[in-house]
Simulated assay, not measured.
Amino acid sequence: QHCHRADIEWFAGLKPCATSSGLYFLRPVTDQPSLPLERIGPYRLVSEIGHGGMGTVYLAERDGDFHQRVAIKVVRGLLGADGLRRFRVERQILASLQHPGIAGLLDGGTTPEGMPYLVMEHIEGVRIDDYCDARHLTLAQRVTLFCRVCDAVSAAHRSLVVHRDLKPSNILITADGTPKLLDFGIAKLLTDDDADPLLVTSPSVRALTPEYASPEQIRGLPITTATDVYSLGVLLFELLTGERPHRLGTRTAAELERVICGQEARRPSAFVEKRLARELEGDLDTIALAALRKESSRRYQSVEQLADDLRRYLDGRPVLARPSTWSYRARRFVQRHRAAV
């Protein structure tokens, strides 16, 4: 059966496919093309595990004194001396990112044909949305897991690295429940920009996933940490409701401008059945919509603020995105101390 989910990654020897009920299963890939290379540097290529607009990812093994499995991404779109120079500079910055929630960048270089490649920690895990659904996580469990994703993004922001392409397929959950973020900063490598900081850039070449892209990405405006806040808002919305805040059809430039930049997102509670809607109404509706505001200056000013408000919700404390009225504070107090009251 052909898989209609274009954003689902391929894994070594297995291909995810959807049934008519919306469930997914893995089947062996019988039509996988032969590998174009046998080796890249000291690494022996095993199989292709993913491909997309930014390049192709291979499962590889390092031979020698120790055995190590890695993921190698051969990057497309970096041609010429300027592109390769930028690749080397950015690669060094990305290699310095050290956080348990971020898949590490181990090595990099160029193939004999001149194609840049990145050697990354190989993560065995499940997409965050599939993980939540398969384990029937409660609302609180989903929010708690999402906060751990925010912690990893915050750590990168403190190192002036913006992800630029946060989406479920770039967030895998390992067997022990640890979220791991993939491709951190890879989109930066495909931008035509010579600015030194990774925090703010003005890309003329945009590598993005439209469903998770912010209005400023669609319009080619400067990218800041608020861009990741927006993408996290889309992810939060999806984990809470099973839907994205905006539905795209043709994905033309005109539609992206009209929908992503012009249409306000509806409240998450409007997408679900009544029982769940009662849980989303109020705090979670407010938090998700605050992260999805069109103007970057009106969103949460940092990912830490977004995660802090979600933890306030989990603790039964007033969230900062809502007006601090006496009646609201009183309701939250009663909910926290229901037994005593």
Rank of each mutant, 00 (worst) to 15 (best):
R91Q: 04
I8C: 05
E48S: 03
C132F: 13
T201A: 10
L306F: 12
R86D: 06
P215C: 05
G22E: 06
C132W: 12
L314W: 08
L284G: 00
L232R: 10
R338N: 05
L306N: 05
Q141K: 14
P245I: 13
E211A: 15
V89L: 15
A81L: 14
G108R: 02
T178G: 04
D193E: 12
A81R: 15
H122E: 06
G233K: 14
I186E: 04
D151E: 15
E304P: 03
R331Y: 04
L37Q: 00
R267N: 07
V57N: 01
S34D: 11
A265M: 10
L172P: 00
R164F: 02
D228E: 09
R293H: 11
V229F: 12
S302H: 09
V341L: 15
S34N: 09
I128M: 11
A270C: 13
H136S: 08
P245A: 11
G262D: 07
D192N: 15
A288T: 12
P179H: 07
G262Q: 09
G220C: 13
G104M: 05
E113C: 04
T241S: 10
I260Y: 05
L160C: 08
P100R: 02
A307Q: 03
R69S: 11
A307P: 06
H157Q: 07
G242F: 11
T209K: 02
P323N: 07
L181A: 02
S231M: 00
A134K: 12
L232A: 03
G282E: 02
Q1I: 10
P33I: 10
T144Y: 11
G64H: 04
P179T: 08
R331D: 03
T201I: 15
A213W: 00
Y58Q: 05
L145D: 11
D65C: 08
E216H: 12
R88Y: 12
R85C: 04
P16W: 01
P318N: 07
F271D: 06
F333V: 06
G109N: 02
P42N: 09
A213N: 03
A307Y: 01
T325L: 15
D82Q: 13
L26P: 00
P268R: 13
Q263E: 15
L106I: 03
G185A: 11
L14A: 06
V70P: 04
R278I: 08
P197K: 07
L139G: 01
Q32A: 14
A175C: 10
E255M: 10
V205P: 01
V126R: 03
C150G: 05
C261K: 14
C3Q: 13
V200D: 01
R299T: 05
P100Y: 00
D183V: 07
R266G: 05
L137S: 03
S20D: 10
G52R: 00
S169K: 00
P36M: 06
A288D: 04
R317D: 12
L306K: 06
T250S: 14
V200Y: 06
A340G: 04
Y313S: 03
A18H: 08
P36L: 07
S204R: 14
T19R: 15
N170L: 01
T201P: 03
G242H: 07
L166C: 07
K73R: 08
L145K: 09
D151T: 10
A152H: 01
R317E: 13
V200N: 04
G177D: 10
A195H: 13
E38I: 00
T225S: 11
S20T: 10
